[in-house]
């Protein structure tokens, strides 16, 4: 009994963190990982971290948003196209962010107002945005805007002995987004309402919280973060292509789950979700080091996903059993 209780108290976040540390430690031992390996995890996955942050809000309320991959792609293609047409970055970036926000909010509105299944609505969103990408341009468009080029290359270099690890500004920006999200979730009424809605929608509305508004807002945020991720991705690749980021929503969802987010809502930490992204990045790195088929990444991620889903399920079953045991004592 006691053992069971302590087990459920070890938060999933701890498991995630331990997993990351062990994997990274093994990498240092066997593959000679350096500081730069660590920093590159951020450099290469900055866009995914930001997009995961957005979907994380949705998952916390117990919803799902599978449109984010398309939104990222749309943002890249549309901004590349606008920049090519000669619009300034100062116009393009706010515009695409606004579109992401508006699009996400519209999805949220449909889901909440008409009580539609989030999966179906965001599925339509996925189709819609992907189609817009190809309507704009089927060919890849390179970004040659000077501002983008400058920002894309902005980085900090360290010198540690003979190593020269570097971190790009946009990676730091992604870290800032994670910190900001953590702050919002912990210290604002909106953040706490998100958790409450995921814990029990009915209780939340009985306690007088603005459930519907919050649910619409998380989809809006998800769209916004996806377009923000898109901006970072266009800095990362300096191009926009209509078929990029297919299936990215799965990476984001798996990251969140591996990071300890409960897909039924209410439980999860943004740090966990971000570490989830890094774990996927690590697996990718190891697979590359080992010169393995890159698809081992997917298989390993899926195995982790499966493991975490089953742990979560076991925990909730344990919870039910514990409650039942108390009933027996009562009888």
């Amino acid at each position: 009994m006691k053992l069971k209780r302590t087990f459920s108290e070890i938060s999933l976040l701890t498991i995630t963190l331990a997993l990351f540390v062990i994997m990274y430690g093994a990498g240092v031992l066997f593959y000679g990982f350096r500081i730069s390996t660590f920093l590159n995890l951020f450099n290469d996955n900055a866009y995914l971290i930001v997009a995961t942050t957005g979907i994380f809000f949705v998952l916390l309320t117990g919803g799902i948003d599978i449109s984010i991959g398309s939104v990222v792609a749309f943002t890249c293609v549309f901004s590349a196209w606008l920049l090519e047409k000669g619009f300034s970055a100062g116009f393009v970036i706010p515009l695409v962010l606004l579109i992401g926000l508006a699009f996400g909010s519209l999805q949220g509105f449909l889901i909440v107002k008409f009580d539609l299944q989030p999966f179906i609505v965001t599925l339509a969103g996925l189709f819609f945005m992907r189609a817009l990408c190809s309507v704009i341009s089927k060919a890849a468009i390179a970004i040659k805007n000077p501002f983008y080029l400058k920002v894309a290359l902005a980085k900090i270099r360290f010198t540690l002995g003979r190593q020269h690890p570097k971190i790009y500004f946009y990676a730091l920006f992604a870290v800032a987004v994670v910190l900001g999200t953590a702050f919002i979730l912990k210290f604002t009424k909106f953040g706490r309402t998100v958790y409450a809605v995921g814990g029990s929608e009915q209780s939340a509305s009985l306690m007088g919280l603005p459930v519907k508004r919050t649910r619409v807002m998380v989809y809006g945020l998800s769209g916004f973060c996806a377009s923000l991720g898109g901006v970072i991705y266009s800095l990362y690749t300096l191009a926009g292509y209509s078929l990029q980021n297919v299936g990215m929503e799965l990476d984001a969802i798996s990251s969140a789950v591996i990071g300890g987010t409960l897909l039924t809502g209410g439980v999860g930490s943004i740090f966990g979700a971000a570490i989830g992204v890094l774990i996927q990045g690590l697996i990718q790195t190891v697979v590359t080091y080992q010169n393995l088929n890159t698809w081992w990444t997917k298989v390993t991620v899926a195995a982790l996903l499966c493991l975490f889903i089953i742990i979560q399920r076991a925990m909730s079953v344990n919870g039910e059993k514990a409650r039942k045991n108390r009933l027996i004592k009562a009888a």
């Binding site: 798996s254 897909l263 991620v301 499966c306």
Partner: peptide, 22 residues
């Protein structure tokens, strides 16, 4: 195991292509 269908099939959706590639 009584996992929600979408979550349960998500696992194979992620893994399946990898398995095929292997």
């Amino acid at each position: 195991v009584r996992i929600q269908p979408m979550v349960a099939t998500l696992i194979l959706m992620v893994a399946g292509r990898g398995i095929a590639q292997l």
